[in-house]
Design a binder for these strands. Structure first.
Length: 663
RNA sequence: GGGCGCGUAGCUCAAACGGAUAGAGCACCGGAUUUCUAAUCCGGGGGUUGCAGGUUCGAUUCCUGCCGCGCCUACCA
């Protein structure tokens, strides 16, 4: 609703400027006045026009206010301060629409969207860094779906890379295990933890003696080649660890639709198809001398032709340091090359497809598919989408941009324009958290604000451990508060709270801020946290339960019972302003979600959830509802609680957070 | 060296497109009528937005330079 009114206001102002002054502003800035008493929207445009029209800002604002005429849904425009124009909406009309949950028609772009997230190397347990990725990605999917978009969720699995090879080396060379023994081990509940430790041991073993790196290369080659014992072991490990990852993420309500694997990209020769096209389009050039002699290279994204190279005219020469090797001199392709092929597939530009097999069935019945050499005949269609979002950390920005440039070089500019690297910063540990985990810190480390986690060193907080800790901590609180409930009920509530705390924690930071992880903060259930927002909803529910109402039914009935005149009455005066602030905030959900999508920034939604929670808690204290003697006013207060409860529940759902029945 | 990002309260972070008095949480201190459960609420102290210039009616935001920090810059993925 809020969004809809803003749009209407913008259009009217634009029309007026065109008609009266013959000016066209590229964008009409609309913001919110510092206080609701001043109105719902503020336009600072008179300042901008002052110079253009050679008039004082106040004068211009006055002319606009007087000349624009009535606008549907608005009470009036007002001149404020040195030249602001403040717009007041018809509170009763907006409130009535909000109570009735009417949604003005919005234009939904056509075309499917593909979101790729998680993409954890299947060689060890997931850690907090992976949680940030998955939670950001999953929330973004929910945002898109809320906005009416059709979305496929993919989780790319690098099952043939060095990381898996390292664990294979660990099993074969350090543990001297056979296939059968490894298979036995892989059936243990937390096999990924076993691999976590083994991976760290292998890394140490490599560091002990350079000779030890030889088996790594051999193992990697064997895996890439396929069809041998080593490759079979790699497959066994990567599939078992992958299953663990799916289980871990399912604890947070994170699901996937399709798991494309590197092994299929390799063996179905995606690269060959891409290579031909890249050569034809001149995106790749063959180096005949210099350090990259014998390689096919392309220009690294972000680099520009130097002045001196310009003399060489359009020979397509790239200075050595600007070259990105795509195909090595031994003929093998690097990961950027494979990524280019994969992304051509995503947009349906490759001319090849995966085989598909059903892989995993979630407890709720949802099916997750995996790539295969020979798939099932009957399968859903993946790929060939019109927009993609890749949730990949900021360190890979250059590689991502290089893939985009390759698509552009191939002439697929629309694909390139609809390719978004959803970039985010890593999760690191505070020095005190690292010390808490028992790691020896150098003096230099102690002075840092954060220390990077390292799977190679086995240094980090595992996702399942963190969740377990959160659940235990929440359970303690629930046990103390609700001894009357059964153990199963308390456990279920504690789990909801733990997931709420974790998901909120990962979403409250803006993407390009490094999270310095600290148990104390992550385990907090007070203040700006998920449980704070959940609690606000629980309190709202309590009012209805105690009052003998059903909160959902109440909303549908009362919406028609409270008249516009009554609403107008209750929204006037000082108390009216206070309560109106709550309704106004509640009307913004769709607007905020649009903003989150446009900027690929889910943190705005977390902020919104917190604000709704704060407003409700304030309201809860200040306006006792059930003891209200004026029946009309009581109904209005109940309606207020019901609207806020509905909107906050909705916002939390988009964040992947559910609300417990009691807290 | 080049590219990207960051620097805001004691700590952790906000402030979309440049806008009205730079806001939250945590921590600290003081309070909340026995009420719809306090995982809550109210109040308080806390700021030269790294430094210096510039553009602008207006700069935390844009531009330039400097200082500090992080990441990327492999025929690894």
């Amino acid at each position: 609703m809020y969004r809809h009114l803003e749009l209407r206001l913008t259009q009217r102002v634009r029309d007026f400027l065109r008609r009266s002054y013959d000016v066209e502003l590229p964008r009409i800035v609309i913001e919110q006045p510092p206080k609701v008493e001043l109105g719902e929207y503020a336009l600072p445009l008179a300042f901008e026009l002052a110079k253009k029209l050679r008039k004082a800002p106040r004068k211009i604002a006055e002319e606009i206010v007087n000349g624009i005429g009535p606008i549907e849904g608005f009470e009036k425009l007002e001149l404020a301060g040195a030249g602001y124009i403040n717009a007041r909406v018809k509170r009763d009309a907006l409130a009535a629409a909000l109570a009735a949950d009417t949604k003005p028609p919005a234009e939904i772009p056509v075309g499917k969207i593909l979101v790729e997230h998680s993409s954890i190397n299947p060689n060890k347990a997931a850690h907090i860094g992976h949680l940030r990725n998955a939670i950001l990605g999953d929330t973004f999917v929910r945002l898109l779906r809320f906005a009416g978009r059709e979305v496929d969720i993919q989780n790319y699995i690098d099952n043939t890379g060095v990381q898996v090879a390292d664990v294979v080396v660990g099993f074969l060379h350090l543990e001297k295990k056979q296939y059968d023994e490894i298979e036995e081990l892989s059936r243990q509940p937390r096999f990924d933890y076993y691999c976590w430790d083994l991976y760290a041991r292998v890394s140490q073993w490599y560091a002990q003696d350079k000779q030890n790196l030889q088996p790594r290369i051999e193992t990697l080659h064997a895996i890439e080649k396929g069809g041998n014992e080593t490759a079979a072991i790699a497959d066994l490990i990567s599939v078992a660890v992958l299953r663990r990852h799916l289980e871990t993420m399912d604890r947070l309500d994170i699901e996937y639709d399709f798991l494309p694997r590197e092994s299929e990209i390799l063996h179905l020769h995606f690269w060959d198809a891409a290579f031909t096209k890249l050569k034809e389009a001149g995106v790749l050039t063959f180096e005949t001398e210099g350090k990259n002699k014998g390689c096919w290279v392309m220009r690294r994204a972000g680099t520009v032709k130097s002045q001196t190279a310009e003399d060489a005219e359009d020979t397509g020469e790239i200075s050595e340091e600007d070259q990105k090797v795509i195909v090595r001199s031994n003929g093998t392709v690097g990961y950027v090359g494979k990524d280019i092929a994969y992304h051509m597939w995503k947009f349906g530009l490759l001319g090849r497809d995966f085989g598909y097999k059903e892989f995993y069935r979630y407890p709720n019945g949802h099916e997750c598919w995996i790539s295969a050499l020979e798939g099932e005949l009957d399968h859903p269609h993946f790929g060939g989408v019109s927009e993609i979002y890749n949730v990949i950390d900021a360190r890979q920005a250059e590689a991502q941009n290089t893939v985009i440039e390759a698509l552009r070089g191939l002439g697929h500019s629309s694909a390139a324009d609809h390719y978004t690297h959803f970039s985010y910063e890593m999760v690191a540990l505070t020095p005190s958290c690292a010390a808490e985990l028992g790691y020896q810190l150098s003096d230099e480390d102690k002075t840092r604000s954060y220390i990077e986690v390292s799977g190679r060193k086995g240094f980090g907080v595992k996702a399942d451990d963190l969740l377990d800790t959160l659940i235990t901590s929440a359970k303690k609180e629930v046990d103390a508060r609700h001894p009357e409930l059964s153990g199963a009920e308390r456990h279920s509530i504690a789990t909801q709270i733990a997931v709420g705390a974790l998901r909120y924690f990962m979403l409250k930071f803006t993407k390009n801020s490094v999270i310095a992880f600290d148990f104390k903060e992550a385990l907090s259930f007070e203040g700006e946290t998920g449980p704070y927002a959940q609690y606000a909803v629980v309190r709202a529910t309590n009012i209805f339960r105690k009052g003998g109402y059903d909160p959902e039914n109440f909303l549908t009935n009362a919406a028609i019972q409270v008249s516009a005149a009554d609403l107008a009455k209750y929204f006037s005066g000082e108390d009216g302003n206070e309560i109106w602030e709550l309704w106004l905030a509640a009307s913004k959900t769709a607007y905020i979600i649009d903003q989150c999508i446009a900027t690929a920034e889910p943190a705005y939604l977390a902020k919104h959830a917190f604000q709704l929670g704060q407003l409700f808690n304030f309201f809860y204290h200040r306006y006792p509802i059930l003891t209200e003697t004026d029946e009309g006013r009581k109904k209005f207060l109940l309606l207020t609680a019901a609207v806020l409860r509905r909107e906050l529940t909705r916002v939390l759902a988009v964040m992947g957070i559910t609300v417990p029945p009691v807290m």
